[in-house]
Amino acid sequence: MQPARTTVTGTAGTGRRSTRRRWDATDLSLVAVFAALIAALAILPGIPVGPLGVPITLQTLGVLLAGLVLGPARGTAAVLLYLVAGLIGLPVFSGFSGGFGVLAGPTAGYLLAFPLAALVAGLLTLGVLRRTHKFRVVLLFLAALTASLLTIHPLGITGLMINAGLPLRDAILVDVVYLPGDVVKDVLAALLAVSVHRAFPRLLAAKPPLRA
């Protein structure tokens, strides 16, 4: 066998991040793992909260986190990947459901709103993280709340009207029940996102040039 030749010369630092615009394997993996995180949060039993222990399911938390942690592009991609996986039949939606059937179900509007929610949350997050280091939790909470009020609730109500045949008033009443839980999830999402960005500061930061 021909002896292999490997030459190593020079100094090594952490010259990992390139300024390449194309996603590398880590970006791809982040998108995939966040899609899995949304699925895991949707499938797993809810966490009991507060003195009454009312369980909240965490699917929308996963969706908002994708935007707040990965930013608009990768965040939206993660949510789209999650939706595609569910639509081709993998039971990753709440209650172990999946398949094109959910498009006929009452929650179709909420599901279709998710990528938009991640997009809006991600765009707002980029604006916050690039501009300020102060009040990040409050600002990211507002980003999450804005995203869910602009996308998830209106589209969810529309879906209830079309697929479950509810009149507008009833649809709004059904939707409003979820609002307090959503505010809790928005707070949680903001707290989590700030922790993640502190632990992995390079996730959304403007990528530094390779050389000083």
């Binding site: 030459t7 010369t9 100094t11 090594a12 952490t14 390779l210």
Partner: peptide, 9 residues
């Protein structure tokens, strides 16, 4: 990893 200086071949 890529070296900050020099080459690996």
């Amino acid at each position: 990893l890529l070296p900050t200086e020099g080459t690996v071949a």
